[in-house]
Design a protein around this nucleic acid. Structure first.
Lengths: 237, 237
DNA sequence: ACGCGAATGGCTGTCAACAATTGGCGAACG
DNA sequence: CGTTCGCCAATTGTTGACAGCCATTCGCGT
């Protein structure tokens, strides 16, 4: 029993620690983000403050604050006296965001080529190597998360925190859109090949070439994303 | 008296209309943004919710919601149980933001070179011409707003709304930083010359050259911004 | 006099209640 | 039968109040 007590006390202490550093608003924010990205809340759907407050066992205050942050982040849209709606991205919006994302990738490549260390280079090479082996056997399930980690690592190595934050925000927003098309992992080989080119440019410390290659890689993603979609999809608005 | 009555009624109607479309949160948000950008609230300063609520004649709810949006926008920083503080940009942050801003300028130039119409071209040319005349006589007061309008127009013509919104957000954040150095309008001539180069690249419909020239123009601003500052400024934190 | 702990004042985080607006439903009317 | 007006339930916008935390200050002991 003392063990269970200790367990409970530990968990209570942890919970209190979380509450001390992360207000309910923050917790609700992450939960809402998760629900939107998971598709539990679908684009265009309205978020019922009262119901959500009840389900999360909190008052409407934190819910509203979290929604205001989500609006600024671009994940939801708020119409006065009507409510907050999960953002519905039009293809044009997605294309615009892809262009921005590509520019940011290019910037990351340009910066990284100038500052990357040998250790970092080895880390990236190792990742690319692993991804190539996964691509060879078609292991999509393992390829995808490593691919995400690869790009995160690049941004971390580039050392521009705001750039990383913005890329994360854009990726979240694009994920809203990407979700529709069950992204069949077409082109694992091509993706892996592009990664190799990126590595090559970095290893040559060629900033301009890195920028170019990084942007091209991002644009491949754009084409794949937009190509698998109905060109005119106004969602019945 | 009937005139005054009409006046009052008009203003009441306008006020009601504003309240119907912009909640108090929105109004407070704009007011806070103005206060921060004006320097009425200085970087590092704490925003007192209670006092602000009293001065704005609203409750703390809308204030808090506005602050959460400002946090997501990067203008303030919130520490749990301590309050919300106007963001204090370190030179590194400013430099990072400048790099991002330059990449976005490049993207705007690349897009615009491909889609600009003759009418739009004429509009931009006219602006540049006016700015050159102002630069010639050193009329900083008139040059600055027109310069802002010039860049806004470019972003509008480029047609990527998210890009424009992000640039606006970054500019606001940089303004937080820029405010310290009383930006003496050094280099009006150089700025005007760069504008002419930008126009030339656009007129040639040369996307890559436009991207390059636009980025260089933004980087000029970066150097001017960072050059006029103490390299290590931790603000006594 | 100086350092340390407790009381205190103010402020933030959260909640529950009130007021105002929206959209739907039904009835009356053309 | 279709349309429009008015009522009503539901939901959002806003407010005021309460509880807990933080920083400061006061008092005590050394």
């Amino acid at each position: 029993m003392s063990e269970q007590n200790s367990d409970i006390r530990t968990r209570v202490a942890e919970t209190l620690e979380i509450l001390r550093t992360h207000s309910l608003t923050t917790i609700v924010l992450q939960e809402l983000e998760r629900m939107i990205l998971n598709g539990e809340l679908k684009p265009g759907e309205r978020i019922n403050e009262k119901a959500l407050a009840a389900s999360q066992l909190v008052s409407r205050g934190p819910i509203r604050e979290a929604c205001r942050r989500l609006e600024q982040a671009g994940l939801v849209e708020i119409i006065v006296n009507r409510g907050v709606f999960v953002r519905k991205l039009k293809p044009k919006d997605a294309a615009d965001l892809c262009d921005i994302r590509a520019s940011m990738s290019a910037l990351a490549g340009r910066i990284l080529a100038a500052v990357i260390t040998d250790n970092q280079m080895a880390t990236l090479k190792d990742m690319v190597g692993r991804m190539e082996r996964m691509a060879a056997v078609g292991d999509i399930g393992a390829y995808y998360p490593l691919n995400v980690e690869f790009h995160d690592t690049i941004l971390r190595f580039a050392g521009n925190e705001r750039l990383a934050a913005m890329c994360a925000a854009i990726d979240k927003e694009l994920y809203l859109f990407r979700r529709r098309s069950l992204h069949v992992g077409i082109g694992l080989d091509r993706s892996a090949a592009e990664h190799r080119k990126m590595i090559a440019a970095l290893e040559a410390r060629d900033a301009e070439r890195a920028a170019q290659v990084f942007a091209e890689h991002a644009n491949t993603g754009k084409e794949r994303l937009l190509g698998a979609l109905p060109e005119a999809d106004d969602g019945g608005a």
